[in-house]
């Protein structure tokens, strides 16, 4: 098994933005190397000097907590200060979901897409609420914790895409169902302009609602993208940092 870098555990535990995480890793690593060299110069054996240097500079649990509090994004520091940090994700999800759900309900009730179409209208409301909840979770990790790891980021993005596709599909299905219903009504009762216009309105509202949900989901994620790109670049640099510090004979030890 490949030996792990002494700072790998710090990298995993330190929940701060990747840019800050890299700064801490590079600073501690450079100090550990220099301190080890200094202790060796003072007569310590290499292994003893390494242990002593790491004991002094590698952050422990309490130190990590302090660094997290210091390097959290401004919103996160505020949330910590008010003591709301543990509740903020749940609260954000409840508020965002509630708002999105309420807007969706009002839209559906306002456009009269209920009645027999409710079987597709309510799932649309649920999808919008889930989109809001998913976005809130990602936004909280980025702007409050400052730490959205690649694996979770990928999971949240896949979920977001899935929900967007579902919103469009439900909109299309609702619209198709309305078109089918309108044709049936024309066949049974003949061509009646008011009824046709009513059906067209329901078709358009279903399609528009599905599309709006998709746009809401996409643009919401787009708002996170600049930070996500920056984080991804930093994550690559963190990987490069560890790759460049592997012991030279590590591949032979496997």
């Amino acid at each position: 098994m490949r030996p792990e870098h002494p700072l790998a555990d710090v990298e995993r535990s330190l929940a701060v933005p990747p840019r800050r995480r890299l700064d801490v890793l590079e600073e501690v690593d450079a100090d550990a190397q220099a301190l080890q060299a200094e202790l060796e110069r003072r007569g310590y054996g290499p292994a003893q000097a390494r242990r002593a240097a790491l004991r002094r500079v590698v952050p422990g649990t309490d130190t990590l907590a302090q660094l997290e509090a210091q390097h959290a994004p401004p919103l996160g520091r505020w949330a910590r200060g008010t003591g709301w940090i543990d509740r903020v994700e749940r609260l954000g999800i409840v508020v965002a979901t509630g708002l999105a759900g309420a807007v969706a309900c009002i839209t559906i009730l306002g456009t009269g897409a209920l009645g027999s179409a409710a079987v597709l209208a309510w799932p649309q409301v649920i999808v919008v609420a889930l989109l809001a909840a998913n976005w809130t979770r990602a936004a909280k990790r980025l702007w409050i914790d400052g730490d959205l790891r690649p694996e979770l980021r990928r999971r949240l993005w896949e979920r977001q895409i899935g929900l967007i596709v579902l919103a469009v599909a439900l909109g299309a299905l609702g619209a198709a169902r309305e078109v089918y219903g309108a044709f049936g009504a024309v066949e049974a009762e003949g061509f009646a302009p008011p009824a046709i216009w009513d059906a067209v309105g329901r078709v358009v509202s279903f399609a528009a609602f599905g599309l709006s949900a998709a746009i809401f989901g996409l643009f919401g994620w787009l708002a996170l993208t600049p930070r996500l790109i920056d984080d991804e670049t930093m994550e690559h640099r963190i990987s490069a940092f560890f790759a460049s510090r592997l012991p030279p004979n590590s591949s032979r030890r496997r």
């Binding site: 600073e27 200094e38 500079v57 952050p59 422990g60």
Partner: peptide
Amino acid sequence: AHGYQIALSVEERTGGAFSFQHGTLYP
């Protein structure tokens, strides 16, 4: 000074009465 130099210097100048362990210097 670098971080490690600060840690060493504090330890030496205080005769070991004060020392920074487990990265406590960084915060």
